[in-house]
Simulated scan of single mutants.
Amino acid sequence: EYLQHVKSASKHMAQLLDDMRLLSSAEAGKLEFNPAPVDLQKFCSELVESIKISYGKNHRINFICPELVAPGKKIENESEETQHWPALDAKLLRHILTNLLSNAVKYSPIDSNIYFELNCDNEEAKFQIKDAGIGIPIEDKEQLFESYYRAQNVGKIPGTGLGLSIVKLCVDLHGGKIEFSSDTGLGTTFVVKIPFYKQR
């Protein structure tokens, strides 16, 4: 039991330090946007497995992704396949999805389902994360992306109040959009849309 408390505290501190470092870089104007081709299906699958190990052992995280390579399209070699991958900043994308998925786990009942869906077209990637958690009170929705702000119904659930402000920052650096819908006690759905970077 003590070991679990130590592990939990260590994760919390590591996340806090990582969040503070990213925000400090952003405030100093040193947070860079470095897009490169990303295999999104593999990236998201591996991220979900990592979240399951770190946060979600008592939850079911369901990753949903249609086939991203068009049916019948033959990829001859790895370099050709890479050319068809969309360009995003993988480091910033990891911050976005890790925060949203870990929040979905943290604020949802044990043994509940979390749905993470990825869809792509020629212009953008759409990430949808849906939980059945405590939801967000209507009076908190306007301030949700502010640093250090936490909703009134979080109770004793630990958190820094930095996660969603970091998500918004990373989405903005991509030129993307983030929206959410929520009902108190019924869960929350976040939708992130990120346009693919095109060299100008």
Results as ranks from 00 to 15, higher is better:
100 L>T: 00
44 C>G: 00
154 V>A: 03
156 K>N: 15
131 D>E: 09
15 Q>F: 09
107 Y>Q: 01
193 K>L: 10
20 M>I: 15
86 P>D: 09
105 V>A: 05
35 P>C: 07
60 R>K: 14
101 L>G: 00
159 G>C: 08
106 K>A: 12
139 E>F: 08
22 L>Y: 01
103 N>E: 10
165 S>P: 04
177 K>G: 02
174 H>C: 05
93 L>N: 02
41 Q>L: 07
77 N>W: 02
146 E>A: 13
32 E>S: 13
158 P>L: 08
55 Y>A: 06
7 K>Q: 15
42 K>S: 12
33 F>K: 05
105 V>W: 04
164 L>A: 06
100 L>R: 01
78 E>W: 11
147 S>L: 04
44 C>S: 11
134 I>L: 14
148 Y>V: 14
90 A>G: 04
170 C>Y: 06
94 R>K: 14
139 E>K: 12
86 P>A: 07
139 E>M: 09
24 S>R: 09
167 V>L: 07
197 Y>S: 07
147 S>A: 15
75 I>Y: 11
8 S>H: 14
87 A>C: 14
186 L>T: 02
94 R>D: 14
41 Q>M: 09
99 N>H: 13
18 D>C: 04
103 N>C: 08
165 S>H: 10
82 T>Q: 11
77 N>E: 08
124 E>I: 05
196 F>D: 01
188 T>A: 03
92 L>R: 10
167 V>E: 01
108 S>W: 01
20 M>D: 08
183 D>L: 10
165 S>L: 02
172 D>S: 13
